[in-house]
Nucleic acid binder design. Structure first.
Lengths: 197, 197
DNA sequence: GGTTAAACTGGACCGGCGGTCCAATTGGAC
DNA sequence: GTCCAATTGGACCGCCGGTCCAGTTTAACC
């Protein structure tokens, strides 16, 4: 039984080119102006190639988001406290909120595009798939920390509410103007207020 | 100087038909499946008529939302306490949160469609226009109540965050399953926690 | 009741989107 | 070098939001 048929060299090269082109375009234009065709052109490949590798627009956005959130994910699961394991749940939660705000702040357009995806996918899919997405990971982490600190609260829903701020248009606009610190402060205020209620 | 040229009878009739068709379709299908052409067909008019009266998809959605939110708006400005003027800001705020959750819960798809509009319009427009929209009114009311109770907090941003829960996909899904009470409870928890911090 | 200007109507039409398809090309195991 | 499968890219599809305009309807005025 040989290896599972590696990805061809040119395919890997084009995959990188597509991801980088998408990243660059989303950093410069609002998501509704970044069509799949434009990404393909900017990457120097055909449209069919993009869909062959990523399946759909939502698939590409998901991969982009996974890339951007990778460092945070590792810091949470394996890194040092207060973000990683070891600190008190309350401290981990506050540190995580700041870190998430930071990631979103440095990728304004991307989260918006992902938000549309999340919203649209809420009509049919099984909840299991959500667990593998970036949103699912963020939500699961928040929920676990809240539940650990205050098992009597509705951690599931509170986690959704805290994250939903990051999909709100006016809030994201503020983030784009460098107000990340301000958003972090208000989110921490809400979180601590709920935990101490 | 005579009256300002009333709307013609057939135009008024078609306007009603379009609004009712849109309302009906949005109640039954997710917003991305409700195209302007479908609304026109369901209302028994041509597509051009719809665009003539409402300008754009966003315009239609805005009008629909204004209709749905009309009762709440009046209750807030002229109705009895605790929703209307007279009660303590804190009580008005909690009552308002419940009322907003109720409106959104009975109009699942509509807010989602409006959310896309709000998000998209965040790239160019002056903030003044936002004041006239339903979102603008809700946000302004919340902000004023928070500021009145706790002038030291970031009322502007906190109001946005509280409202953003209503645009979050998973949260709206819960609302669609009759969990309005659960959402109201968590929002009240967050609000009271912040006010007492 | 007839005249008339303006408001309204609706369907053909437009560019662009996400997504599909498949003939031609390319890579790499042997 | 051979050969098969993975990959490629652009033509193509149906649909969308939005525009246009020739024809129709309304209602104000005489």
């Amino acid at each position: 039984m040989t290896e599972v048929r590696r990805e061809r060299a040119d395919a890997a090269r084009n995959r990188r080119a597509i991801l980088e082109a998408g990243e660059r375009l989303l950093a410069e234009y609002p998501p509704e102006q970044v069509s799949m065709e434009r990404i393909a052109a900017a990457a120097g490949v055909g449209k069919g190639t993009v869909f062959h590798r990523f399946g759909s627009r939502a698939g590409l956005m998901r991969e982009l988001m996974v890339e951007r959130a990778h460092a945070l994910r590792e810091a949470v699961t394996d890194g040092p406290p207060p973000l990683g394991p070891g600190a008190a749940p309350r401290d981990r939660l506050l540190a995580f909120l700041d870190a998430v705000v930071d990631v979103v702040g440095r990728n304004k357009g991307l989260l918006a595009a992902l938000g549309e995806t999340v919203t649209a996918s809420c009509d049919a899919p099984d909840d299991a798939r959500e667990q593998h997405s970036v949103y699912g990971f963020w939500h699961g982490h928040l929920r676990a920390l809240i539940a650990e600190e205050r098992p009597d609260l509705d951690a599931e829903l509170l986690a959704h509410i805290l994250l939903s701020a990051l999909q709100n248009g006016p809030v994201v606009r503020l983030l784009g103007q460098g107000e990340a610190q301000r958003l972090g402060a208000s989110l921490r205020l809400l979180a601590t207020g709920a935990l101490e209620a």
